[in-house]
Amino acid sequence: MRKLTAVISILFAATLTSGFMLFEAFSTSDGPRQPVEFDHWQHVSKEEGPQLECSTCHQYASASPNATIPSVSTCMVCHESINADSPEVKKLAAFAEREAEPPWVRVYWSEPSANVFFNHKPHIRAEIDCVACHGQVSQARRVKREVNHSMGWCIDCHSRKNASIDCYACHR
């Protein structure tokens, strides 16, 4: 009897760990896990949602090198009252209460060793759709890296749009 319990418990543990590992594997292919499960689809595309523009939250994309992630206080403008009972919004409220920012995990970036100095502003001015570089974020429940920002990919678009392909345009 004792043997049987041992075998069962080992099997149980094995199933649990393998299940957990599988879950982790799938979740990473789905983009990094964020401190608050922010759902872009719900905010941008959902019929009965607020249907926000990208620039509502990433408001400095048109004016600066960085698109910027809004501070929790911006989230709380709506979420003070809307969906205040949901566990994720509660997490958000807890951050706001501590006057802290959630440690968001970056999805798109270039390695420092690439010496790339990207600037959002001229891209917005040239009316490049956010989707062109960031993929279908508006449909994503969790954002992942859909577009591979290789240099060839950048140059390809720059030459099509007659933008500068001088090295010094991006590298310094």
Binding site: S113, S164, D166, H171
Partner: peptide, 14 residues
Amino acid sequence: TYHTEEGLNAQVYN
């Protein structure tokens, strides 16, 4: 090292 259209002598570190 190359010459830019703005007349700068540029160095591409990478």
